[in-house]
Structure formats: structure tokens, C-alpha cells
Amino acid sequence: MGTSKIKKHAEQQANPMNLEEIELEEQEAISPWKDTFKRLRKNRFAIIGFTIILFFILLGLLAPVLSSYTYEEQNLANRLHPPSEEYWLGADHIGRDIFTRIAYGARVSLQVGFFAVTGALVFGTLLGILAGYFGRWIDMLISRIFDILLAFPSILLAIAIVAILGPSLENALIAIAIVNIPIFGRLVRSKVISLREEEYIMAAKAQGMKSGRILFHHILPNSIAPIIVQATLSFGTAILEAAALGFLGLGVQPPTPEWGQMLADSRDFIQLAPWTLFAPGISIMLVVLGFNLIGDGLRDALDPKMKH
């Protein structure tokens, strides 16, 4: 019985190919994305983040179902009504239901976040790739534009852009997108510069691949991880910036409810009716926190070096 074992061993020794076969037998192909998702699910904080965001998405979507009021319905008799069965989160200074306004406001905030981040991501990534891959004067030009944009405090720049374009939801969105472009641009540029030196990019070139293909098929997929993380974190900042613009009266125009604007409207009543401030304030905080938790979770999940 021992001899067969020895024989087998000898065969393996004679044919090293066999050894590799045995070594790899147990493995199955796991795609990097599945792997990431698996790790993300194990991160408790990321799950909390997802839950918070999901809550606000549902709140926004189901606003008409959840509330019997409309967001502009005034009831002057119930001005600054404290939270009650009738008004779950109280009523504001002209008797509008705060819960209803928060729910509709979630739509605005999430929209602003989504479109502003998408815009910044698309343009920032494109510019970053061009600057990083082609270098020379293209890099010079694009990087200096980024530097100029970053030289302004972001909110100040956003205010300036809205002031030029005129206050509205769309313009606030555009302003926030522009403010965030250099953040994505610089991130992608630095990632592309380091990837450009990778041997597999040189190997791709040595195979006769065209620049466009190398850029979008090899470099971009490899820089997607930090882009995703930044996008999630920027989602939070974009919502915060939108709230700030709203607070200053430069965002969404009344009567459309917006959390920042709700804060601004209620700040005169902070002593008299603090609940009018709590609801929008806490909503902003929770949404931003949610996105940050997801962002942190993603960062850990997307980095293979963090594996246990």
C-alpha cells in the first residue's frame, strides 16, 4: 500500500507540471468585484451607512404616500406647532408640516448629490486621464486649471458660479459639480501616472494596442476603485454644499423644500421652536454620515491589501 504512494510521488517529481495542477485544483475564479462585495457585506459600519441612505431614498420616494399634507400646504393657525400626532416633526413658522417637507427635501438633496457627483466624476475623470496619460502641455494646462479651481474655498466658488448663473436647483447642481471636478481630476491623474508605469501597460503597448484602448480598457478599470470611494464621499459633501447654498438662498427656490433652506427659515425661532431646526439639521447630518460610512467601507473593501 505504501508503494503506490511512493510511485505517485515519484511521478509528480518527474513531471513538475503535475505539481502546479495539484496546487491550483481547489481554486475557482473569483472576480475582483464579487470579492469586494463579499468584504463590504462584512463591514458593519458600511451596512449602517447603506441603511441610512436606503431610509432616505425610501422617504423621498414614498413622500406622497407617507404624508397626508403637501409640502406647500400652510396652516397659519398651527404656526410653530410642536411635534404631535398631527405634525410628526412639528410645523414651521407658516404652519407647514415639517415631516412632509423633510421627505420631499430628501428628493432634492439626493438628486443634487447624484447629478453633481456624476457630472464631476465624468468630467473630472476624463480630464484626469488626459492629463495623466499624455502629460506634457496637456497635463500642464489641465493641472493649472485644477489648481485655480482649488485655490478658491469651494463654497465661495459655488456661490460665485450661482451668482453668475442665477439661483436655481439646476445652477446649484452645476456649481457643485464644477467645484468637485478638480477633486476627481487630480485623483485620477495621480492614479493614471502611477499605472502608466506598470509593466502590464508596457506589455499592452508591446502588443500593439492603441492608446484609447489602453486608456479605457486597462488604465481606467484599474483606477476605478479610488474613483468609487471618492464618489461616495463626494456625495456627502455635495449634499452639504447644496444645503449651504440653500441656506444662503442660492439653491432651490421656495416653495420647493430644501433642507438648507429650511434651516435658514427656522433660525429665527431657535429659542421658540427648536424642533424646526432639529429635523433638517439631523437629516443633513445623517445623510452625510451615511455616505461617509459607505465610502470608508468601500475603501477598505476595494483594497486587497486590507484582507484580514
Binding site: P32, E199, Y200, A203, A204, A206, G208, M209, N222
Partner: peptide, 26 residues
């Protein structure tokens, strides 16, 4: 013209097999 030659008429392999393949693709 070089892009037609590279990989087709003249091929090249590199020193580091560990990093010569794109990690994201099969």
C-alpha cells in the same frame, strides 16, 4: 505602422511576469 508591427511581427516579453498581466482581467 509600429502598432501593426508590435505584437504581430515583433513581440516582447518582460522581466516581471508577476506584473505583466492586468490584474483585473482573466
Amino acid at each position: 505602422r509600429m502598432k501593426k508591427i508590435r505584437g504581430n511581427e515583433i513581440s516582447m516579453i518582460f522581466q516581471e511576469p508577476m506584473t505583466s498581466l492586468n490584474p483585473l482581467f482573466t
